[in-house]
Design a binder for these strands. Sequence first.
DNA 1: TGCAAAGCGGAACGACGTTCCGTATCGTCG
DNA 2: CGACGATACGGAACGTCGTTCCGCTTTGCA
Lengths: 209, 209
Amino acid sequence: MSASGQAGETPGADKPTGVRPGPRRKDARRNQQALLDAAATVFVASGVEAPVRDIAAEAGVGMGTIYRHFPTRADLIVAVYRHQVDACAEAGPALLASSRTPYAALEQWIDQFVDFLVTKHGLAGVLQSDNSGFEALHAYFLDRLVPVCGELLDAAVESGEVRRDLADLGGLQLMRGVGNLCVGASNDPSYDARRLVAVLIAGLRRPAG
Amino acid sequence: MSASGQAGETPGADKPTGVRPGPRRKDARRNQQALLDAAATVFVASGVEAPVRDIAAEAGVGMGTIYRHFPTRADLIVAVYRHQVDACAEAGPALLASSRTPYAALEQWIDQFVDFLVTKHGLAGVLQSDNSGFEALHAYFLDRLVPVCGELLDAAVESGEVRRDLADLGGLQLMRGVGNLCVGASNDPSYDARRLVAVLIAGLRRPAG
DNA sequence: TGCAAAGCGGAACGACGTTCCGTATCGTCG
DNA sequence: CGACGATACGGAACGTCGTTCCGCTTTGCA
């Protein structure tokens, strides 16, 4: 099941973040880093849907190299944004501890997530499962973030701030909804994803005071 | 209304929507209809993102023919779903007149719109502006539906059911939000777009009674 | 220093949207 | 009724994309 398939190879169970067993050879390691840098640059300039060739060119490597290090573009995207995703995941419990109420924590966490998505051109558009070849990206983002989101949601239900009939909505659906609302947000200044997400989150709330 | 691009060819500026200016020659008219039927069939079978060649093959025509009748795939999609879009547009004022409150009308109208989107595989995914070459589709759907949605929203604000601070949200943003929430809904049974849309619409409501 | 193994570049492939143009068909006018 | 120009047709061809493949180069170890 291709649990990981990220930069290096992590055969066993997944190790959360952190150390990756880089390639054995020095030039390979250097190219891998060049690829990551180039991808980050190109993603900022042209969005995450930029042609693979552009990234290879920016890094000064051939097509074979890019695909050996990152079997699919999704793996590259995951590698580039991995630490930001991890930061977002780790922010969840922290917010839950520091905020006044679970709902406030959920609000802030979603805000942070939306910021992340909106900042990266086209990232949200690629999070949809109907796209082809992005299972890895999907898998990583979701595996990492869904449990956090689910916990926040559950806590907010438990505290009575969120409608009980939404208890079974689940972190996955909420995240997909939020992600979907962010699609196209970076391209069109007349579309305010943050505002719509805020409306969605407001809709979770229990009606009467 | 109508800014553009529909079935036939538009030599100069725009042409009024609604009536098809069928081609002058009989075989042309026949092929155009065959294309529409084929497209409808293929869209149901493979989604609206099906390759143009598949549609041409299903219709038994060549590539040139399909592009002469429908300069871009978006025009074909618009032509196929035009009457459903029109029906949706016309349902707006009717619901406003027949429902107990403007908010109820808005709810029902959105429901109908979501049904439409979810039923067509991948249609929602194509409504995003970040995709290429779908301006025509975007233009038609939006030109037709946005004013209706805006009216319903305005009425619901006016009646005090919807938060006043959302008065300037506009039909466009609300529709884009709803459309975005429907992305990928047909492919993944675990994602309930209708439910999330309901949450979004609930979020429009004024909080305390 | 030699020699696998590991890694590299980029040509090549297939799918796609779209364009182009030689040919076939239509409908009209003589 | 039989041409003849306009109209429409088919499908090959082009450019772009993601991805694969393979002959060559580099590396690191003995």
